[in-house]
Design a protein around this nucleic acid. Structure first.
Lengths: 228, 228
DNA sequence: GTCTATAGTCGGATAGAC
DNA sequence: GTCTATCCGACTATAGAC
């Protein structure tokens, strides 16, 4: 229809290219060490356009964080939403799902998080999140509310259902953190793990082995208190 | 004896002050963003002395990594060594320690690592280690051989003993990683955890709650496969 | 909306006095 | 062994042409 070869508004392609490049470079070097020159070059555009589109380096950084939230949402959002509607306590709603169902969904959730954290794509933005955790900036709220809070909410519901314990108790929440930790370690301590296992990458075979181990651990941890 | 008020060689105090300051600043800002000016100022010395004592910024960074290895070694080295001598397979040595003994030591080891990772002191250098894991430099070898390898070695021995499985099997190693991950998460995802728990810090009470949860998890994970 | 050019700041390294 | 002073490169932000 329009004379443009593409159908994005005029400078939208530039905006997207800058964000895409910025994820890599902010992720690799951190906010301070990353240079707007390098980002513009990687994006195939001009350095001055960062000021035009985002107001400056900090504005670009915030746009990058929002983009990460969107990417993660596309990956695990559907599963998280599905669990949320099934397990969110609605007064007068249908019968409560069984613990078996909750356990199956918890395994799915852990698998989804593991798949995300071991993907090559996650290497860049996982670093950004790690940095924000160590030294939260004003952008941390975006990540917390867009990712962590959502995942932890449904995870504590599942654990509470399996154990027959309150989802908001300290023990339930701490259990959720340890489940996340077991998964997170394969991204965070990746260099140590590759060296220790004599692996060269986290390919499908390696991820399958990890998945099996996590499955056993999740079952063991959740069965434990159920029997008390 | 000497006319000096202290008994360190001439510029040793300067060296130590620079390393102490550099741990904080490299930890907070990362290698690139940290400035030698800021480090020198924090150390109460002169910026040019970094070049004199360490040859430059990279040399100072390597000295900092070695210092971290030494600090961690002072904290958990004795326990790790004790476990190593008790569980290292020596041909013709005394009878094998019991699984009960191994489990007790494993709980001690996890406790020691948790105590280290939740200490205020660890905040600075834990960040440095995290960065090295995400993007290993030539200094990563120092950390791996000085810390990770030692801890994982004794941990896999303990797990192998408890399960009656080989300490070098993939499953044993993966289990060790998950145990580390459960502990590590309380340093790595600290910001998320504090917010989610509505805690303001990881003080003695909070650490005790975490410790109890880790204890339950470790028991559950190790009991699971023992019964098969 | 995109570009070039540049002003202003701050970085690491180092020469040379003491 | 420690200091001051300085060189030179890299950075962000921005003015102004197109």
């Amino acid at each position: 229809m329009t004379p443009d070869s593409s159908n994005v508004p005029r400078g939208e392609a530039t905006r997207a290219a800058l964000i895409k490049a910025a994820i890599d470079i902010f992720g690799r070097d951190g906010f301070d060490a990353a240079s707007t020159r390098a980002i513009a070059e990687a994006a195939g555009t001009n350095q001055a356009l960062i000021g035009y589109h985002f107001g400056g380096k900090p504005g670009l950084y915030l746009a990058v964080l929002q983009d990460i939230v969107d990417r993660v949402g596309q990956r695990i959002g559907p599963l998280v939403s599905a669990i949320g509607t099934e397990f969110c306590p609605e007064p007068g709603a249908g019968s409560k799902p069984s613990a078996k169902r909750a356990e199956a969904l918890l395994h799915q959730l852990v698998d989804a998080v593991l798949g995300m954290l071991t993907s090559d794509e996650s290497a860049a933005w996982a670093r950004l999140i790690l940095r924000e955790q160590q030294d939260p900036s004003e952008g941390f709220d975006l990540l917390y509310e867009g990712i962590m809070q959502r995942v932890l909410f449904v995870m504590t519901r599942l654990i509470g259902c399996i154990r027959g314990a309150p989802a908001d108790s300290a023990a339930t929440r701490l259990t959720a953190f340890t489940l996340i930790g077991q998964t997170l370690v394969f991204r965070v301590a990746r260099a140590t793990i590759l060296r220790q296992m004599n692996w060269s990458e986290l390919g499908p075979e390696e991820v399958a082995a990890i998945r099996a181990q996590l499955h056993r651990n999740v079952t063991a941890i959740l069965m434990e208190q159920t029997g008390l």
